[in-house]
Simulated scan of single mutants.
Amino acid sequence: MKAMMISALAGAVLASTAAQAQLKPEEQVEIRQAGYQFMAWNMGKIKAQVIDGKEPYDQAKVAAAANAIAAIANSGMGALYSPDTTSAQLGKQTRLKPEFFDNLEEAGRIGGEFVKHANQLASVAAGNDQAAIKKAFGDVGGSCKSCHDKFRAD
């Protein structure tokens, strides 16, 4: 089992390295920012319906938004992070702190929590329990905030 996990991790690292080699640092930043913007737009749709009540609740629309968030969270965006894509190298083009790469274990843990919470949001949004959706929405937002607080420059 341990050998299988090490093999899977090695494969992920190699795939990540190959993806990085195919994109310029500026392209990596542009693509990951687009992914996060799309997730934020979908979070806004859920917030308007479930949290703020500014729009009528539509379970199908909430589920579609949650599925979009989960799909991007599971898309392998980690391949879009390289030491060449921090604010130290690219200035204001990105807000990724260089410290991210000094704390890869913590960054991976936070990223894993984000994926877990995004998947949970998609799962509960498939149902009609608005209280469960609200909690899962908060968990996703909390995981976003924990990364921003640690690794995102102002």
Rank of each mutant, 00 (worst) to 15 (best):
F101V: 08
G44A: 10
S143T: 05
K135F: 04
A70G: 05
N128P: 04
A64L: 09
A118M: 00
G138N: 10
V140Q: 09
K47L: 03
A63K: 15
L121A: 01
N103E: 06
Y57D: 15
G141T: 10
N119Y: 00
F101Y: 11
Q20H: 12
D139L: 04
S16A: 10
Y36K: 01
T86F: 01
G35D: 13
A132Y: 02
K135W: 08
A66P: 10
M39W: 06
G53M: 14
G78K: 05
R95I: 06
D154A: 13
K135T: 15
L104I: 07
A70Y: 05
E55H: 14
R32A: 00
T94R: 01
A88H: 06
F151R: 03
Y57I: 11
K134P: 08
E26F: 07
S146M: 02
D102P: 04
D154K: 15
Q120K: 14
N74R: 15
G76T: 06
G44T: 14
E106M: 03
A64S: 12
L96K: 09
W41N: 11
K92L: 08
A71H: 15
K61N: 11
A21W: 11
G111F: 00
K54G: 12
Q20N: 13
G112I: 01
I133R: 06
P98V: 03
S87E: 14
A71E: 14
I31F: 03
I6E: 13
A65S: 14
A70R: 08
T94H: 03
K145S: 10
V29W: 07
A79S: 14
F100H: 06
N103R: 02
D52K: 14
A73P: 02
I69M: 05
K135C: 03
M77N: 13
T86L: 07
A122P: 01
G142D: 03
A19Q: 08
A126W: 02
I69V: 11
E27D: 13
G111P: 00
Q120H: 10
F114R: 00
G91D: 00
A60Q: 15
A19W: 12
R32C: 01
A40Q: 14
G138A: 04
Y36H: 05
A107C: 01
S7H: 08
A19F: 08
S143Y: 01
I133T: 09
C144K: 05
K135N: 14
I69P: 04
F151G: 03
A136P: 04
P25I: 05
L96T: 09
V29G: 11
A136Y: 04
D129R: 02
M5S: 08
L90R: 02
V140S: 06
P25E: 11
M1T: 12
A126I: 00
L96I: 11
E99R: 10
